[in-house]
Structure formats: structure tokens, C-alpha cells
């Protein structure tokens, strides 16, 4: 009931704020607001290890968090000038549209209706993590494919499109199953661990992250079957191109840095080398030695240097939070650069 009430309150709040915001000047971009404030308000989940997680010392950690930090480093010159807001799935879009946060970096799937003005009215930044809905089972259950789940029970959480994806995929495969729905992620996990259901479904990253919290993570396996496409991307409110572009090219900068082989460790050497060698034209533009690309965006020319110095390139960010040595190891697969068979590809910095 609380969640429904919150939703209702949120709906009325949005309309109220919409009415008030009507008189504000149109030309004011969020980019200026953030600069003026000196702090980036970033919406995160805070409950998903590897993506955004509140550590015991009170700091936030994860791939989504690093996007916030990179944007803060670029816009404000200080990656720690971020005010994190923990948001639940139903709250997130309202928080963004009402202006409570500047940037939503919270494992959010980019979809048509969320992007469109008639829907949630967001503008999505480049995809930060290519995900898909998956199924997790006990390793000793002998279940290896979706067909093995015939007649079994699958536990699922509410508040996302997970339920419908599950139904669509099993219907298409002709597999009969039983879905048991809970409101909270914790309840889904408890029911699964207590043996009420043979399998549990969520985004594959979410499953990996949930598994890392179990007593014996190795006793659970994520099936190869992928039930849906879930491109997770940060989002800003629609109709503010200057702000959206600043966020978009900050993320492309992280991806392109990996393509160029620039890391947080060698970036200063790269900048010095490019400054000394006029033949490295592309590198000089990218690192802001010349070209004024940053200025076109309303950012400092060395914005890529600021971002990479603060959080590393995309590959470094990934390895830190989701790499083999991390708490939530997820194979890079689709999330590799395009040269390694993945989907990450930055447009040219020209």
C-alpha cells in the first residue's frame, strides 16, 4: 500500500511542480544549474552490488556511481561533488522529471515509451551496460535450459517488466511454469533460498549481484538463456540538449579512451606526448590539446582527461566493479569494445 500511495503522491507532485516550473526561463540548462550549485544530484539504486551500492563506510560504489563521478569531474572538476539519492524503481522517473535529481544513473532499461514525450519523457545517454533478463537456479538442481523448468516454480519481483518478459519467453518456448510474485527483492531471494521456487528471474546483472550476497555464491548458476534485451543507460530529462550532450559525450569519452588505449595510469603521459607531437591530430583533439571540442559542449576542453583521471576508462570501470577479481564477476561479452566482439562503440571525436 505504501508503494501505491507513494506513486499517487508522486503523480500529483509532478503535476504540481510542472505547474510551478511553467514560468521558469526556457534557456536555462541543467548544465548551468549544476555548475551554479557546485554539486551534481545523481539518482542511484544503492542496493545493487557492482552497479551502485552503499558501502559500510557510507560511500557509494559501482559502475553507475562511477558515471555520476565522471560527470561531476567533467562539469565541476571534482568527482566527489556528487549528492547521491537512493531511488526505488517506481520513484526514479518522477524524481528526474520533477528536477529532484540532475542525472539518473540507476540500471534503467532504455525503451521507446520511457524515451518518448508521450511516455516518461526521458533522454537516454549511451548504454553503460548491455543486460538481459536471465534465470538463476541451484547448481545441483540439474536444470540447464529453460525447457528443464517445465512444471517448476519461478520467483519474480514486481515493479518492472520482468513478469511480462518471463511470460512471453516461456509461452514462446511452450514451457509451462508457475510464477510466484513478491514485492521486494529480498523477499524474492528469501523464497528462492528457502526452496519455495526452483528458479529466480531478473536482469542477469541483478542476479549476479544478488548471488554475490548469498552464503555460497558458487552453489547457484545463471542459465545461458536470455529472455529479453535490457540495455541499461543513464538518463536525463528530455528537452535539455546541452545537458544531455554533456552527459552523452562524457560517457563516449570513457568508451573512446579504452579504444585509444588511454587509462587513468597513462593519461598524463599521453597528454604530454600529444602536446609534444603535432602529428597526433586525433589524439590532440580527443585530449583537448587543441580543437576546442569541449567548448562546443559547454565543457572544459580537457573534459575527457578529467573524466578518465577520475574514474579510468570504461574497461577499467568495468573491471573494477564487474571484472573477474570483483565481488560480482560478470563476463564482459556484449560489454566489450566493438573490436573485441562487444557492442561498445564511440562515435568520432571530431
Amino acid at each position: 500500500m505504501v508503494r501505491l500511495l507513494k506513486r499517487l503522491a508522486a503523480v500529483s507532485l509532478v503535476s504540481l511542480l510542472g505547474a510551478c516550473a511553467g514560468g521558469a526561463p526556457e534557456s536555462m540548462s541543467r548544465l548551468d544549474t549544476v555548475k551554479e550549485r557546485g554539486e551534481l544530484q545523481c539518482g542511484v539504486s544503492g542496493k545493487l552490488p557492482g552497479f551502485s551500492f552503499l558501502r559500510t563506510d557510507g560511500s557509494y560504489d559501482g559502475i553507475d556511481v562511477d558515471i555520476c563521478r565522471a560527470v561531476a569531474a567533467v562539469v565541476l572538476g571534482d568527482s566527489s561533488a556528487v549528492d547521491y539519492r537512493q531511488l526505488s524503481a517506481p520513484e526514479r522517473f518522477t524524481a528526474l522529471r520533477s528536477g529532484e535529481i540532475d542525472l539518473l544513473s540507476r540500471n534503467t532499461t532504455a525503451t521507446l515509451s520511457r524515451d518518448s514525450e508521450g511516455g516518461n519523457g526521458l533522454t537516454f545517454a549511451p548504454v553503460v551496460f548491455y543486460d538481459g533478463q536471465g534465470l538463476m537456479v541451484r547448481a545441483d538442481s540439474g536444470i540447464a535450459t529453460m525447457e528443464d523448468l517445465e512444471g517448476r516454480t519461478v520467483c519474480v519481483g514486481s515493479g518492472t517488466t520482468t513478469e511480462r518478459n518471463l511470460s512471453d519467453a516461456f509461452l514462446a518456448a511452450g514451457v509451462n511454469y508457475n510464477a510466484l510474485k513478491f514485492q521486494e527483492k529480498d523477499q524474492v531471494a528469501s523464497a528462492y533460498l528457502q526452496g519455495r521456487c526452483e528458479s529466480i528471474t531478473s536482469d542477469r546483472s541483478g542476479l549476479a549481484s544478488m548471488r554475490s550476497g548469498f552464503d555460497d555464491p558458487s552453489a547457484h548458476r545463471i542459465l545461458n538463456a536470455v529472455l529479453s534485451k535490457e540495455p541499461l543507460a543513464p538518463a536525463t530529462v528530455a528537452g535539455d540538449p546541452r545537458w544531455s550532450d554533456a552527459v552523452r559525450w562524457t560517457i563516449y569519452g570513457l568508451i573512446a579512451a579504452e579504444e585509444f588505449g588511454i587509462t587513468s595510469a597513462n593519461i598524463q603521459a599521453m597528454v604530454n606526448a600529444a602536446a609534444a607531437d603535432p602529428n597526433q591530430a586525433a589524439m590532440r583533439r580527443f585530449l583537448g590539446v587543441d580543437g576546442g571540442l569541449g567548448t562546443k559542449l559547454g565543457l572544459p576542453d580537457d573534459f575527457v582527461v578529467r573524466a578518465v583521471s577520475a574514474v579510468g576508462n570504461y574497461g577499467e570501470i568495468y573491471d573494477r566493479h564487474l571484472g573477474p577479481g570483483s565481488d560480482v564477476p560478470i563476463p564482459r561479452d556484449l560489454n566489450s569494445g566493438y573490436r573485441d566482439g562487444g557492442l561498445h562503440y564511440a562515435p568520432p571525436f571530431n
Binding site: 501505491l4 506513486r7 517488466t161 514485492q183 523477499q187
Partner: peptide, 30 residues
């Protein structure tokens, strides 16, 4: 009885919760 969703029972509240999420029709669902 609307607390049913906490223990995985598909009561009217649990069904309307999913319905509102999927259709985005919060007010009509209410």
C-alpha cells in the same frame, strides 16, 4: 488482506500492482 503481496499470494492488490506497472495507468488502476 492487501498485505498478501508480501507473501506471494496473488490477491487483487498484487494483480493491480502488476497491471499499473505494465500499463502505466496508475489512476485508473487505483
Amino acid at each position: 488482506s492487501t498485505l498478501a503481496i508480501a507473501v506471494g499470494y496473488a490477491d487483487i492488490y498484487a494483480v493491480s500492482d502488476t497491471t499499473i506497472t505494465q500499463t502505466g495507468r496508475a489512476i485508473e488502476g487505483f
